[in-house]
């Protein structure tokens, strides 16, 4: 815990001391691509034959795309869907998005996350916890920004997480439920390509109301409760030979 506190302190430090070039406030659009055949291939109870069947049938047409946005300022960030509903490409079919708003308050070291999962809406209200990031020796360009690679592990879902963060945008804002790198994550790869979230547009501008958390009803829980819910669900689903990921975000 102590280590994390130092980390927060230094995040705050650099957040306050280096507000330069106006590159610390704006909106980033993301495309979140889910590859279900890859996820299904990870289910331990399926035989190789069943996994291959899914791969042969759906492998060449396996991209489920969602448009997301990340709104950030030097002190806060909010991650949610780009549009208030899911849409087919031509816009003629629309569906309801599951509730998902993930906010970070770097100043107060707090977070509020509205997450619909397991058939309920939960509001996770807790202080910020940082995963153990490892910074790697690779760089690449995402949306016009040179990003460095950092990796961590989701110990609950047993996922390898790869993040590409831009040192040029000195805010610890991230897509999904992560936190704690010296720059905005512009690409997030969950479990070697099972889900890839990539920035498509980075726009710097003064924000007005975009960072305000919408009012939503839900059950208030802490990170520990969230983890317990997930742990039980994963355990029960795998045991019952059901795919757990239809009911939770991968």
């Amino acid at each position: 815990m102590k280590k994390y506190n130092i980390l927060y302190a230094s995040i705050l430090l650099f957040v306050f001391s280096f507000t330069f070039a106006q590159k610390d406030e704006g909106i980033i659009n993301f495309e979140r691509v889910v590859h279900y055949p890859k996820i299904i291939a990870r289910l331990p109870y399926l035989s190789q034959e069943e996994k291959d069947r899914v791969k042969l049938t759906w492998g060449s047409d396996d991209e489920w795309k969602e448009k997301m946005k990340l709104v950030f300022s030097p002190t806060k960030s909010l991650y949610t869907y780009l549009n208030d509903q899911g849409e087919s490409e031509d816009g003629t079919w629309a569906w309801r998005n599951d509730e998902l708003v993930i906010t970070r308050d770097f100043e107060k070291e707090k977070k509020t996350e509205i997450i619909e999962m397991l058939g309920k809406t939960y509001i996770v209200d807790d202080s910020l916890h940082t995963p153990k990031w490892k910074v790697m020796n690779q760089i690449k360009d995402v949306a016009g920004y040179i990003c460095m690679k950092a990796v961590t592990e989701d110990t609950l879902k047993k996922q390898k997480i790869t993040a590409w963060f831009a040192g040029d945008i000195p805010v610890s804002a991230v897509p999904e439920r992560y936190f704690g790198l010296p720059g905005v994550i512009l690409e997030l790869d969950i479990n070697e390509g099972d889900v890839v979230i990539t920035a498509t547009k980075v726009e710097f501008k003064k924000l007005d109301k975009e960072l305000i958390l919408p009012k939503t009803k839900g059950k208030k829980i802490k990170d520990a409760d969230y983890d317990a819910l997930l742990r039980n669900h994963l355990k029960d689903s795998i045991k019952s030979q059901r795919n757990p990921y239809w009911a939770i975000r991968y």
Binding site: F18, K132, K134, V135, A150, P170, G180, P182
Partner: peptide, 29 residues
Amino acid sequence: PFATVMLLTPKDSTLVNFGRTDEKGAFEF
């Protein structure tokens, strides 16, 4: 100026701390 400076553990490159150089390229943890 404004380079990202990180302290990692030598064993497995875990991020411990980070900061940024100032206008003169200087940093301090």
